[in-house]
Design a protein around this nucleic acid. Structure first.
Lengths: 212, 212, 212, 212
DNA sequence: CATGAATGAGAGTTCATTCAT
DNA sequence: TATGAATGAACTCTCATTCAT
């Protein structure tokens, strides 16, 4: 927009940062394709074109790279979700949130599988990490729903159930979408519309006067 | 209730069957607590109070015990789900299905976590196994929904999306329920009622005459 | 040939002896086909149609069955070899020895491979056993050759070399023969004739007056 | 002989090559003493003063080290054997072959036992490997003998039998020699002479006019 | 005597992590 | 800082042998 010297894609100058990023990218690729346990550190360093020891210069251990990757996506998602302001246009904001989440996953379909791999029980080591995220989102949603109920724009009912069902449904839907080869219905705009409809059906009262 | 010598819980007499069951139970416990990879065969045999070699008398290998456990739950769930007959009382059947699924998981809360651990990407070895089950359920649901749409008792819309969202929502809900310590809302009957309401809101048109 | 009450094939009446024999036969079969290390006790008892524990009622351990099988063949071979009496027809006796050895192996071609598997170094456990046999035969042959040299019917030269070469040659030849599907040259009489010729060429002076 | 800085025995400078060689040497020692099955990877790495994992940096698995050792000797032997050229001095070439084989085994008496351990039946895994070598040598010898018969310098008779007997005799002789503590007769030149004599006796017509 | 389930020491192999260069 | 060879604890699975029934 102006003559700022910043590069469009600031192709990292600092070689240390670049290395770290390369390893992270390689890890994401490998973890996504192979799964956490099948992904060997050897695979990651091979993909990053780096020696094995280098890996440990940038990361504590195998587990911490995975954790960092998860955090990355979590951060992106968190950034995409905004607390619904009841004084503004509700539907628009909900739509925006849905679109945001879909968008993040669309941009980085590989990590979807990683993130959606909640896998409770399969690996206790990551339960806490992933659960923390889901719990956060769930709480955010619950709070919004409660507020909405007070304002009469969310149907009565147990918000925990609403929240859990919503999040679960979205997860499955997006997982499906990340796998679907074609599927016009899984095109972003259609998906967004369909999800909105579902939420409306379930509990969301939009497009109606706030007043009874 | 009578003089039959059979025991209420017939505490398996056949020692081989008993051992197998003991190992299976131990494995379920260990897998559930530790997760597949962290569960060592040593842990399982220790829990079953059996020597290491014994394990291999009853199971091909570690993986096959896990697979068998999954199959067990899948079978229970499959048995609990019936195809909805549109000539009979729809709501009752849907309710029965919901109740059936909830019931199975309630009876065996440990394995829930195991089954709900779809974990795509975390372990390619079991993806196919678990996906096959989910795909089956999804297809069953999709078919029912299509039929329902033809009869006017299911709202219009993409049945794939309906099905995926429903299953995802249920998974998350039941997972939550399996963790909830107290939570009155997660009591079976209330849960059943709440789920029914959600489905109604999303797409199910019940309690109304088929014909306008 | 007469009314002797002995049975032609005295199909052992004593069940214990029969069991033992059955196990031995099974072991021979399995060892021959699979080799010592690949032959599992399970395979042997399966072939003998006997429970695993039974094996240990009749034999100390796996090794001892093998040893006994080797001893069996060694005994047969030892019986087939006679010390050459220089006062009688030399050629005839040599021929008889060759024929005897060939005959034993022909009767029991399975065990040939077992016996010829001298395998020094491959398994120290059996070296001593098999070496003892070969050394015995070698010494026997050496003694005969020495005697023959004294009588002028064996060429001059190192009898140890003669003996070793003879035994090695025979081993290889018989091993080949035990494998040869067709091979007219490996028919017993032809083989016998050929071996005799070789020995004559190497050191045996037959059909000539002892004294020049 | 000059001022070159190269060492007489260039004690491998490349540490990777050195390690590999050390492991190979250790394996040869251990296999030779203990036999293939009794030789544990632990023994080999202990002998090489290396950690267990290191073994697997240099070799696929236990079996492949053994195979490589066998191949090594086979290669040496193969190099030592030349096809007899009938237009040149026959006796000299045969003598050279004999000397070559004896020489190889003399240089590395440990591996002799390994190589001579044909052990059919003792381990099917290596039968093919070793048999391939013996069959090769046998075919080479047979071809030479056939050629020789056509030229009248090899006696009539079944060349397969000649070849088998020769190779078996040599094996046994060299095995004996590799064990013989003292034994003047087993000194290389004497051995070479004796073998030549045996071959002459059996079928080789040397030093005589081709014409009757 | 016979059975065959149970045993458990031990084998080969893997792989996250370390560290000398 | 980067390397990659070395490490060794740990894991799964095997199988000869034992022993209660």
């Amino acid at each position: 927009m102006s003559a700022t010297p910043t590069q469009a894609l600031p192709r990292e100058r600092d070689p240390k940062v670049a290395r770290r990023a390369a390893l992270l990218a390689a890890a994401r690729e490998v973890f996504t394709v192979r799964g956490y346990h099948d992904a060997k550190v050897d695979d990651i360093v091979a993909a990053a074109n780096v020696a094995k020891g280098t890996f440990y210069l940038y990361f504590e251990d195998k587990r911490s790279v995975f954790a960092e990757l998860v955090d990355q996506v979590v951060a992106q998602l968190t950034a995409a979700i905004v607390r619904v302001d009841v004084d503004a246009d509700i539907e628009d904001q909900v739509r925006r949130n849905i679109r945001g989440v879909i968008g993040v996953l669309r941009d980085d379909p590989l990590v979807v599988r990683l993130l959606l791999s909640y896998a409770p029980g399969l690996d206790p080591a990551f339960e806490s990490h992933l659960r923390a995220f889901y719990d956060g989102v769930k709480r955010l949603l619950e709070a919004s729903l409660l507020e909405g109920q007070a304002l009469g724009i969310v149907a009565r009912g147990d918000v925990r159930i609403f929240a859990a069902f919503t999040i679960g449904g979205l997860k499955e839907l997006l997982l499906d979408a990340s796998r679907a080869e074609a599927g016009a219905a899984y095109e972003s705009p259609a998906l967004e519309e369909a999800v909105l409809r579902l939420l409306e059906g379930m509990y969301l009262i939009v497009g109606r006067p706030v007043r009874p």
